[in-house]
Design a protein around this nucleic acid. Structure first.
Lengths: 109, 109
DNA sequence: TCCATTAGTCACATTTAGGTTACCACTATT
DNA sequence: AATAGTGGTAACCTAAATGTGACTAATGGA
């Protein structure tokens, strides 16, 4: 949150800094109607490495978009979910997905 | 358009490939209610280099989001505008901007 | 003659994002 | 004593994105 937002006042730069990149929008979308643990997210995103997934989750948490809850169990379990701020992105994520879906369909035709 | 869309079927990957990155959403937004020439865009985006601006415009054109029209004048003039596909992004761009704007305001407070 | 102007390009350097592989802690189960 | 299962981390590497500064063509005007 801190650095990414404060040093600029362009709303696009701000938004893209928080949800841009190859993976963040997908992660947020996966969490948009379920709390999920690390392994579940990884299973639904076969092409992201665990390292990068871990990094992205950390950034999303630092930016206040997702919440991380670690349970003291063996084997360990960690649940990720959207914060209120993250929830506020849901309509935008949906529109991005719809737009992309149309592109895919039009291209195939 | 071609490569970026065809090799995957994830709508987020598609959309982010076309409008992600630090500059593309800003460029599209600047064109969303005006046709503008290269220098005008550059003037409104002081922190992008001319080289990168030129590259981004080429990609946006190749992806079918913007239209480029070169006039045979001296000094040369080139006008950029949104295509219909580009226009279809306007509501999304607006929402991204509004969301980012809120972030900036909340952070300053 | 020389400068200004527009819309770039070229060669090069640097920064950032993302990827690969191996490894760890902790406990239950076999 | 070895293995499985979860959620990671560390060291290292590559490719993509972005930046810098110099340069160009073509012509009108001082």
């Amino acid at each position: 949150m801190e650095n990414k937002v404060e040093n600029n006042s362009c709303p696009f730069t701000t938004t893209i800094a928080l949800i841009g990149g190859r993976w963040k929008s997908i992660i947020l979308f996966l969490l948009s109607d379920h709390t999920r643990c690390f392994g579940e997210i990884a299973a639904r995103m076969p092409s992201i490495s665990r390292k990068v997934l871990s990094e992205q989750l950390k950034e999303l948490e630092a930016d206040g978009l997702i919440h991380r809850e670690k349970f003291k169990e063996i084997p360990p379990r960690v649940e990720y979910s959207l914060t209120d701020l993250g929830q506020s992105l849901r309509p935008i994520l949906k529109d991005l997905a719809i737009w992309g879906q149309k592109m895919v369909l039009d291209t195939v035709k």
